[in-house]
C-alpha cells in the first residue's frame, strides 16, 4: 500500500510522520504559555478559532534549544485526543513509500526512543518514522 510521510528536521536529523495524521503545517504564530505544564509544552495557539496545544519537539526529544528561524514550522497532527502541534526546525518535503525501504529500529534505539517506529532509507535520504501520539503523553502530569 502506498504511504506518504511529511519529512521534517531537527538539527541534521530527519523524521517522518504519516501524512494521514497531519492536519496542517503552520508558520510560527504567537503562542500563549501554559503555566505549570511540562517543560516541553510551549503553550496554546489560536488555530482558526480552536485553542490548540503546541509542544517544542526539540525540548521533548532532548535537543538543545535554539532561536526560531524563518524556517521554523508547527506541524499540526490529528491525534487520539484531538489536534495538537509540535515545533520543528524545517518541514518542506513529502516522501512516498515507493522511494524508500523500511527497516526496523535497532534494539538500542527502540529502548531509547519509544516514539520511533522504524527507519526509512532511500537513495538520498534517511529518516526515522515517528509515532506522534507518544510525543503527547503526560504533557500535564510529567
Amino acid at each position: 500500500m502506498e504511504q506518504k510521510w511529511v519529512v521534517f528536521q531537527l538539527e541534521e536529523n530527519s523524521y517522518g510522520i504519516d501524512v494521514q495524521s497531519v492536519r496542517s503545517i503552520e508558520r510560527l504564530i504567537p503562542i500563549t504559555r501554559i503555566p505549570n505544564a511540562a517543560s516541553f509544552v510551549k503553550g496554546v495557539i489560536n488555530l482558526r478559532g480552536v485553542v490548540t496545544p503546541v509542544i517544542d519537539l526539540r525540548a521533548r526529544l532532548g535537543f538543545e534549544m535554539i532561536e526560531e528561524t524563518e524556517e521554523t514550522r508547527i506541524i499540526i497532527a490529528t491525534l487520539e485526543h484531538g489536534d495538537a502541534g509540535f515545533i520543528v526546525d524545517r518541514a518542506n518535503e513529502v516522501v512516498e513509500s515507493s522511494d524508500v525501504r523500511i527497516e526496523p529500529l535497532s534494539e538500542q534505539k527502540q529502548e531509547d526512543a519509544s516514539y520511533l517506529t522504524a527507519v526509512a532509507k532511500g537513495e538520498h535520504q534517511l529518516f526515522s518514522l515517528i509515532e506522534p501520539n507518544r510525543l503527547f503523553e503526560d504533557i500535564v502530569h510529567a
Partner: peptide, 11 residues
C-alpha cells in the same frame, strides 16, 4: 473555549 483533553487538569 476548552483547553482540550491534552491540557486537562492544568492547575
Amino acid at each position: 473555549k476548552p483547553l482540550g483533553s491534552y491540557l486537562e487538569g492544568i492547575r
